[in-house]
Design a protein around this nucleic acid. Structure first.
Lengths: 250, 250
DNA sequence: AAGTGGTCTAGACCACTTA
DNA sequence: AAGTGGTCTAGACCACTTA
């Protein structure tokens, strides 16, 4: 369990750790705007004196705040409050199978098309590999009960995942299969609302032009692209949720 | 700057700190599936011996992994690898003004309607307050150049933010104004794709039924709701982006 | 040269949880 | 009773950055 400020504040009996007290103090000063962007936080030594604790305890707090993006730390200069350009929230992207099961529906998936072929120029660029490298191109439809739930269009870099060429994806759909077979180190998601094109409309059994949510995800291992996927959901059936509590982020 | 595993791997010269080495080791074991969910990680004492370092150093790493949601820690039981139910990604939600400026367009906003009135039953429930409490109900249109960019429909809990009743929001739109005036401790976002209704279509100058992205955000201060807002963007003009690197999350 | 953060140590005492 | 994590201390040495 992650204990965050929100939770901590509701559990009134729990004696706050020194760490948490210092964290909340500084955090509140920043979030309420008492300490404006550019404000310089007292150096660790001084904070340690103020709170009557060791420098290590203060250091952990301030490091955490830097990780959460509230401040920037630089040697000799000190810790400076950053402008709050963005609210960052934690978006949980669940496995489609789990999503469907969580709705109490029966999950199934179906491979509509599968090919191994050299990457086109555009694809190669997108995946960050040289042209003519082999990729797997897979189209997969996910069902909730008998209803189409999500259309998956995926490219896999066979340099990184050669096993994918021979895989049928019958038991596991490409997403979870890849999670099981490849270590990855970074992912990027783009989320947009669009009107369904002919392909999406046909497979998802919705009218052309009706709103769909498109989630595009690209995954890297070190600096090699592993896979790139576009997930298309009918607008009615899918909502993403993201939460944020500042102290949780660090 | 947050230094994450991805970055670290690309900066080959930088000597890895002990902390980072231990973190990467454990993380890779989990992310590659060598340590399956349920696997029990060696206790801190033993890890400290293995790496020839003090327990404190190990503790910081393992605490960070727990915060990132990769493992669960329990006294006496130890640290257990959690099932990877979700990929979590960090979604940055920018201020609309900044978003527009970043596109090189001129930003402006316009208050279309503003009222102070008692909350309806549904609104009271949504905001988690008793009925008849006063709320501010504001509709605001954001422009990029001369084009409508985003429709904002907002409720503000006047118990928490009494000043909002008298505010005209001419200089600052309600979002940034609230950020400047109220400390908050948690936020929740829901993101969906829908077809534009009559109201949205009219204000955004798009056809009825055309795809829009709807971002609903609710913000709390401790356990009081501060504000609830619905932002509606034409599907064409807006994409959300979320990134993730595992070690960054902690 | 001096201030600041980055990292680490070797210990301590306690709280919680299972047995 | 014993194992494990939670938190904290009082120091250390160094790297970086500004002056």
């Amino acid at each position: 369990m992650i204990e965050d400020a929100f939770t901590a504040n509701r559990m009134s009996e729990a004696p706050l750790s020194l760490h948490r007290r210092i964290l909340s103090d500084i955090e509140q000063n920043i979030l309420t705007g008492r300490w404006q962007p550019g404000f310089r936080i007292a150096p660790e030594q001084q904070l340690a004196l103020q709170y009557g604790c060791s420098r290590m305890t203060v250091n952990k707090v301030v490091t955490q705040l830097a990780r959460a993006g509230l401040i920037q730390r630089r040697r000799k200069v000190g810790s400076v409050v950053l402008p709050q350009k963005a609210q960052s929230a934690i978006l949980e992207i669940y496995d489609i199978r789990e999503e469907v099961k969580a709705k109490g529906e029966i999950y199934s998936h179906q491979i509509l098309a599968q090919a191994v072929r050299p990457a086109s120029g555009q694809e190669a660029q997108h995946l960050g590999l040289s042209r003519k490298k082999l990729i797997a191109d897979i189209t997969c439809l996910h069902h909730a009960g008998k209803q189409p739930y999500c259309l998956e269009q995926r490219l896999i870099n066979l340099d990184v995942v050669p096993d994918a060429a021979a895989e049928t994806f019958e038991t596991l759909s490409p997403g979870p299969w890849l999670l099981d077979h490849v270590p990855w180190s970074a992912a990027e998601h783009r989320i947009a609302a669009r009107g369904a094109g002919t392909t999406e409309a046909t497979h998802l059994a919705i009218p052309i032009g009706s709103p769909v949510m498109v989630v595009e995800r690209q995954t890297w291992r070190l600096d090699q692209s592993v896979t790139s996927v576009r997930l298309t959901y009918p607008g009615k059936s899918h909502t993403l949720t993201a939460r944020f509590t500042p102290s949780q982020a660090g």
